[in-house]
Amino acid sequence: MIIDPLLLRTRRHFFKDCGIGLGKIALASMLAKESFGAMGNPGFMRFPVKAKRVIFLFMAGAPSQLELFDHKPKLKEIEGKPIPPSVIKGQRYAFIQPDAAVLGPCFPFSKHGESGAEISDRLPYLSKIADDLTFVKSMHTDHFNHAPAQLFMNTGSGIPGRASMGSWLSYGIGSEADDLPGFVVLQNGVLSGGSAMWGSGFLPSEHQGVPFRKGPDPILHVSNPKGIDRTAQRHTLDLLSTLNQSSLGQFGDPEINARIEAYEMAYRMQARAPN
């Protein structure tokens, strides 16, 4: 019997085991924030929350919606013909040659479920649960280049620097879960929009997405440096706690308390992070 250890690492495992430490990033960033912040208590339950979690899959480079959910029969009609001038308006676009022609849908669509959602035959399983899905087809954009379009999708603006969807959620409704970070980014491959896609823009920077990275450290610096074992790390944290406590006693600055908490959380995160 072959047991691939990777197969055992299910999503549940990730959330359950790996998440405990990581999850507290969010809580920490909400509770251990600068207590004096002019924003009051940003993020925490600003509105009544119904959603338990939001999973947003942004699949740059995936098959086009035109082949999956968004049936465009008109394209079939004009397939093979030149691009209508109204579309390109005499502009030069990269990679569109003068002899470019229209491509219609490559796969057949049919209606599914009571809603009659049109789904392509490339999604035989998903189409069986058509009535459990919501398709939003009202979104459109003028941006046709990668970076602005990706930024627009994630931040509502084609220009880098606005608050991303995840940071809005973190800011607006926060997260009461203590086993998941408020806003994490799992990235595979290169994205044109760069880190601005999970930036916090003009929102407090604690709401920016925490990227989980490939390689040995899914979170930057979650591993101890060479030569330092967990005991040494514990000793160090004990010392820090003692001295920071003494500082707290002297200055009365609640930030010090938050710092102590943050270090303890970091330590637990180190124990729990997948490696």
Partner: peptide, 24 residues
């Protein structure tokens, strides 16, 4: 990141900062 004019820096206090100072 130099994407926008920034009039004031936030001052958060997070475990990621602890990891950076400890292990970077």
């Amino acid at each position: 990141s130099g994407e926008n004019c920034l009039a004031k820096r936030d001052r958060s206090n997070t475990p990621l900062q602890a990891l950076t100072l400890l292990n970077d």
